[in-house]
Nucleic acid binder design. Structure first.
Length: 317
DNA sequence: TGCCCCCTGCAG
DNA sequence: CTGCAGGGGGCA
């Protein structure tokens, strides 16, 4: 599900709640969803929550609980890189990829057992569906009684126990393109990367994680609209002025996504179980047969690379 | 550079 | 029943 704005929304919510907590227990309901040894993270303390592309990382102390360790990550609250790229210090982390339907929901009602019954707070209406259910694949229990649920209906997602050496230049992140909300993402870089695939539709190019990381189907559609460019256009056909508009369009779409707490089509909820509202503000995604918010022309839907593609035939040329 | 596939569920 | 869904790895 989640693209950059959704993962960033989850990251921000989790950071406020779990930094400093110790993982007491890991319950794995779906073995294929958990890669690595759960034992390695039990007793470890959370020191940072970060994001790279559409992946979310939780840095853990490497030594016994309380031991000191340095964060593996490099992204601050705004999703921008603070300490530059690498080298990363040796440490341990949990790395999540939520794919299409993954959720990370923190249940911080402090459950107490009274008279054999669980007693706690009241879940929000949105959260009720995200509580441990038939789609819960992994449950992390923390020292203060709170729990983190990794839910994933379609089972495409995963969580992996990683060492810092597995990430970075030679690791899992090796092929990822630039972070679109960082300085390294310029219109020139975008142009250069898109031109590596001259005949690929521009919207499909934006979804290529080697071109720019973190953009998925919703925000690629919105970025093309923001730039007033036909999503079917080929990179070879674009002028420099259009590459600049596309660059701005990507950044605007992602920032707006974060501003509205992400997009909820069907499954996305943030770490508190609340949906996101960006789709209320979307210009084209999911709006086929509806009037364009700018010119009233009917929004069209086509398929590109097997993915639903929405655009305004009048605004986007 | 395109499919097919991993899976589950829902809408038409 | 078929088709489609915030992703992306693998294979021809």
């Amino acid at each position: 599900m989640p693209e950059l704005p959704e993962v960033e929304t989850i990251r921000g919510g989790l950071e406020k709640k779990i930094v400093g907590l110790t993982i007491k227990k890991v319950d794995i309901c779906a073995p294929k969803s958990f890669i690595g040894k759960a034992q390695e993270v039990q007793g470890k303390k959370v020191i940072k929550v970060w994001r790279r592309a559409k992946m979310l990382g939780i840095d853990l102390t490497t030594g016994p609980a309380g031991g000191s360790s340095r964060p593996m990550s490099s992204l601050n609250a705004a999703g921008t890189r603070r300490d530059s790229l690498r080298p990363r210090h040796p440490s341990l982390a949990l790395l999540f990829h939520l794919k299409m339907t993954g959720q990370l929901v923190l249940d911080d009602r402090k459950w107490k057992v009274e008279g054999g019954r669980m007693v706690g707070g009241h879940p929000t209406p949105d959260m009720r569906d995200a509580m441990p259910n038939s789609h819960t694949r992994v449950v992390f229990s923390f020292s203060d009684g709170s729990r983190l649920y990794f839910n994933d209906q379609r089972r495409f997602g995963w969580v992996k126990v990683v060492q810092s050496s597995e990430l970075g230049v030679q690791g899992l992140f090796e092929k990822l393109g630039p972070e679109p909300l960082e300085k390294e993402f310029t219109w020139q870089i975008l142009k250069q990367n898109l031109l590596k695939h001259k005949s690929t539709p521009i919207k499909s190019g934006l979804m290529d994680q080697q071109v720019v990381s973190g953009v998925g189907n919703i925000y690629a559609n919105e970025a093309c609209f923001n730039a007033r460019i036909d999503p079917r256009a080929r990179s070879l056909e674009l002028s420099n002025a259009q590459f600049k508009k596309l660059h701005q369009g990507v950044v605007k779409a992602l920032r707006d996504g974060i501003k509205h707490g992400g997009s909820t089509r069907a499954h996305f909820v943030d770490s508190e179980g609340h949906r996101g509202y960006f789709l209320d503000y979307a210009y084209v995604y999911g709006r086929d047969e509806h009037p364009c918010k700018i010119c009233q022309t009917e929004i069209k839907k086509v398929t590109l690379g097997g993915r639903g593609t929405y655009f305004c035939p009048a605004c986007q040329r």
